[in-house]
């Protein structure tokens, strides 16, 4: 296991160059260009004494719809760890470049809210490649600690399309089965939409500016087309952040927020949020007859939610938030 401690957050621009370099035929023969390895290297990057910048957090909160609080938005540490994610995937021993990887799942485990000015240390490592119905997948694990205690974890599962049990370009039986499973197994299937959001065409650039994630598929319709998308697509992590911002007042301090990214959101778009909160009958304990001051709603339970296209109903994301008991096993990585 190679653990590298970085002195400062890596600069993203050179990393993008390296992430995209494998697209040039033969470039992976160079030692610093990913693509040479057959499997994911054992690698761990750490960064000490990271502090979120208040003004940047405020900008992020605005783009995602969070209130500016004493604590970081639940998704914000992902932004702090993003340069490390890029650095891991730009490593010369990596079997493929980051460009072209698809973020298919993200799970955040917040043990407690993280203060804005709190000094944090971030550790990132990739898991081994595993076969997936549509190719091969691995997970980038992020652990954020404060004062020696793990306070926040993130598991980002990335898919490398092709070479899986289903062929890449043709919908094989395996793929069909996986897609069916996706639809039926949706934890938010059948929920009633509670909010409609109009997403502007420049949303990708806006989120890129506050998150540092400048993947060309998000930046402009033309650059997105180069990678086979019909137009610029919204960041998956933006859509997760936006959903959690809408549920913010109902999130327990210690919770787990897991989402699956389904079909990409092509910008501009009109999308709808549905959540299991709307399954609660109106006035459950909160009816006008109930005495004021009564406790209403169920903040302890699990919240399922989904984001879909407002017109076509195309699923974009579905997820679930579960409260985490403090006694529960802290670390799940290694």
């Amino acid at each position: 296991m190679a653990t590298r401690t970085l002195k400062s957050s890596p600069r993203l621009l050179p990393l993008y160059a390296r992430a995209a370099a494998p697209l040039i035929p033969g470039a992976c023969l160079l030692p610093f260009v990913p693509g040479a390895g057959k499997s994911i290297p054992e690698l761990e990057l750490t960064l000490q004494d990271v502090r979120a910048d208040g003004a940047q957090v405020a900008d992020y909160a605005k783009v995602c719809g969070f209130a500016l609080r004493e604590h970081l938005p639940i998704t914000y540490p992902h932004v702090l760890a993003f340069p490390l994610h890029m650095a891991v995937m730009a490593d010369g021993r990596f079997p493929f470049g980051a460009v072209g990887l698809v973020h298919i799942e993200n799970r955040i485990l917040q043990h407690r809210p993280v203060g804005i000015g709190e000094p944090l240390s971030i550790k990132v490592w990739p898991t081994a490649l595993e076969p997936h119905a549509r190719g091969r997948a691995f997970t980038l694990v992020t652990q954020v600690s404060a004062g020696g205690e793990v306070v926040w974890e993130d598991f980002s599962t990335m898919l490398r399309r092709g070479g899986g049990s289903a062929s890449e370009n043709k919908v094989g039986p395996g793929e069909r089965k996986a897609a069916d499973r996706d639809g039926e197994g949706s934890p938010a299937a059948g929920l009633r939409p509670s909010a409609t959001w109009r997403l502007p065409g420049d949303l990708g650039r806006r989120y890129a500016a506050v998150s540092g994630d400048r993947n060309p598929i998000h930046m402009h319709p033309l650059s997105a087309k180069l990678f086979g998308f019909p137009g610029a697509i919204a960041h998956g992590m933006w859509s997760k952040a936006r959903c959690l911002a809408a549920l913010e007042s109902r999130l327990p301090d210690a919770c787990e927020a897991e989402v699956r990214f389904r079909k990409p959101i092509v910008l501009p778009a009109k999308v709808q949020l549905a959540s299991s909160l709307s399954e609660q009958p109106a006035g459950a304990g909160g009816s006008a007859e109930a005495p004021a001051g009564e406790v209403v709603g169920d903040s302890a339970g699990e919240i399922r939610f989904a984001l879909t296209d407002a017109k076509k109903g195309t699923p974009h994301l579905d997820g679930v938030v579960r409260p985490v008991e403090h006694s529960e096993e802290r670390s799940t990585g290694k």
């Binding site: 003004a55 900008d59 909160a61 209130a67 500016l68 609080r69």
Partner: peptide, 12 residues
């Protein structure tokens, strides 16, 4: 608080 809105602060 230069980046905090009235709504942010009232919420806080």
């Amino acid at each position: 608080y230069s980046h905090a809105s009235n709504q942010d602060m009232l919420t806080a």
